[in-house]
Design a protein around this nucleic acid. Structure first.
Lengths: 203, 203
DNA sequence: CCGTAAGCACACAGGGCGGTGTACTTAACG
DNA sequence: CGTTAAGTACACCGCCCTGTGTGCTTACGG
């Protein structure tokens, strides 16, 4: 509340420590993982004194949770709010991830923290459910017979591609997109022609 | 704790240290994660002195790598060497995991260690490729048109179910199995009327 | 019965970590 | 100007972690 809008002109001498901390988190947590990134290193990268960091975040756990919350706008909206695509194409667009994306940070956080009670783990849980829900909404919009099922299935494909990309160090999203195309065509009874036979995947 | 009799009667718990260490690793690494399990705690659980542990494994990294290698027999063989099942059922049996399984330890290790050069990460990589290859073999045996593709697709489903089970704390393997049934039926041209209905089941 | 290898108990080094205390400096605003 | 909120510099604490050094005890094979 009293964090940012205190001053009309935002720049104090430290030029917005909180933003720099979160920005550095995005980079370091992704590159090195959460557990392997110490607060000292993080503050050095953000050019912020450690004391200031602990005045913005009571502890590292809270910082990690906030770091995760910063991913929503770029992931959820940029895919689902595209009005230039038909619902079916929007579902497939969820698998068009740029190859720069290393790994879904929510999965990484859940595994690294290893504590379902951790606020970041709980947020990851909620986020994954939200993605499945938005996929289901889009599936319903596309006329799927069982939108919830299709949404859950597509969400599973995304997570599978993310995990596999990480372990194998090779992009697995094309394979997932191929499966998604099959599932979508199987779930849309009104698409033109006999989709069932032509539903072939290609990686 | 238990009154561990240390000398007078009965064999000292010595002479099986390595096995006990690896056994304790399986339990603790799964329950708590690798990074959150210290060598002190591990040795205490294994009833092994720390000195002995470091005479069997030069460092923790090597222990982690060896810990991962102990999963092969129980995962690869127990599914693929079942002669009582037809190839198609064998493919689906890969999704019949007992609910006690918390998470694929290979994914967990890759994420936790966060270093593709780590021996355990490399072994995880090889293992995942081996699973995909065995799935492809079984797919070929079942008469799939593109066995490699189907194997890779099923492997992705397994990893997706594992990751999603972890993040959501809910079993995602039934959903993955439903998708697998669809993919398998789409890839087997000769099973036209038999299993079509099963492809509609889901979580 | 003795030698040797395996195991044990325990202390300790060295380092990284999360987090704090203290005294100080600067920018913004009235 | 003065006040005040934000940031700084840096030392420091306590904890836990991996990994060793040292001397001692036990089991087993010949």
């Amino acid at each position: 509340m009293t964090d940012l809008e205190k001053g009309p002109t935002g720049r104090r001498r430290g030029r917005g420590a909180r933003e720099r901390i979160l920005s550095a988190s995005q980079q370091l947590f992704r590159e090195q993982g959460i557990n392997r990134t110490g607060m000292d290193q993080l503050c050095a990268a953000a050019q912020v004194s450690k004391r200031t960091a602990y005045q913005h975040f009571t502890n590292k756990d809270e910082l990690v949770a906030e770091y995760l919350r910063r991913f929503d706008p770029s992931v959820l909206s940029n895919v689902f709010d595209r009005t230039d695509l038909a619902p079916r194409e929007r579902l497939l667009a969820a698998f068009d991830v740029p190859p720069t994306t290393p790994l879904c940070p929510y999965i990484a956080a859940s595994v690294e923290l290893h504590d379902p009670q951790h606020p970041a783990s709980q947020y990851a849980h909620d986020y994954k459910k939200a993605v499945a829900a938005r996929l289901a909404d889009t599936a319903r919009e596309a006329g799927a017979t069982d939108p919830e099922q299709l949404g859950e299935q597509l969400a599973l494909l995304i997570d599978g591609a993310a995990a596999r990309t990480r372990v194998l160090n090779a992009d697995a999203f094309p394979t997932a997109a191929a499966i998604a195309a099959v599932l979508i065509d199987n779930a849309l009874p009104d698409t033109a022609g006999d989709h069932r036979e032509r539903a072939e995947a290609s990686s």
